[in-house]
């Protein structure tokens, strides 16, 4: 294992850590590494770094490694960590901020989740609402697993739980503009 040069790591990660702190409202220095977040995290078992380790990496300036991690994509935003943190920090907000930064930097370590989110939002942007059938088909095609969940589709249709056509709202042009404006405003802010 290569030693980490902390002097250069801290300097290199400074800007990104500052961005994450501002966006999340969490002072990562305040974390005392107790691990209660990771102990209660329902997805920690599948993560490459536990939420505590993500906080630690930010403390040491290893910000780029965090935005390349799978952990930030696996986070289910269940907020268990935030609810139990003895320092009232909110690791879930840090995960959220890291994910946004990762997307901005073009790192999407977990293609499946990133793709799912993207398809979800694309559906909202074009219809104003989520078109679940379209979402599932689009997602499964994009992740090259066309038959996944295919078994349930017919019975969903039969139960009236999936619609063949999207429900479109009248104000979808507004929604579309909202996406553009929000993207621009966040980009301008950084």
């Amino acid at each position: 294992m290569q030693p980490i040069n902390l002097t250069s790591a801290l300097a290199a990660g400074k800007d990104l850590v500052a961005k994450v702190q501002t966006a999340s409202g969490v002072d990562v220095k305040a974390c005392y590494q107790c691990g209660k977040c990771s102990a209660g995290c329902p997805v920690a078992f599948a993560m490459d770094y536990t939420p505590r380790q993500v906080m630690r990496m930010l403390q040491l300036g290893l910000a780029e490694e965090t935005i390349k991690s799978r952990a930030i994509w696996l986070c289910a935003q269940c907020e268990t960590c935030s609810a139990r943190c003895p320092r009232s920090l909110e690791p879930a907000k840090v995960m959220e901020a890291l994910r946004i930064e990762a997307k901005r930097a073009g790192f999407e370590a977990d293609d499946e989740i990133a793709t799912f989110n993207e398809k979800f939002l694309r559906s909202v942007a074009s219809n104003g609402r989520v078109f679940e059938a379209g979402l599932i088909v689009g997602y499964n095609m994009a992740t090259v697993q066309p038959l996944k969940d295919a078994g349930v589709a017919p019975s969903m249709l039969a139960k009236g739980k999936l619609k063949l056509f999207p429900s479109k709202i009248r104000g979808r042009d507004v929604i579309n503009r909202m996406f553009t404006k929000a993207e621009k405003m966040e980009a301008d802010n950084k």
Partner: peptide
């Protein structure tokens, strides 16, 4: 009338402001 999707988790973990605006 004419309500839109709230964005769910995908919204706010992609763009903070969008997650509030939707």
């Amino acid at each position: 009338p004419d309500w839109n999707c709230c964005g769910a988790s995908a919204g706010h973990t992609t763009n903070h402001l969008l997650g509030l605006a939707l």
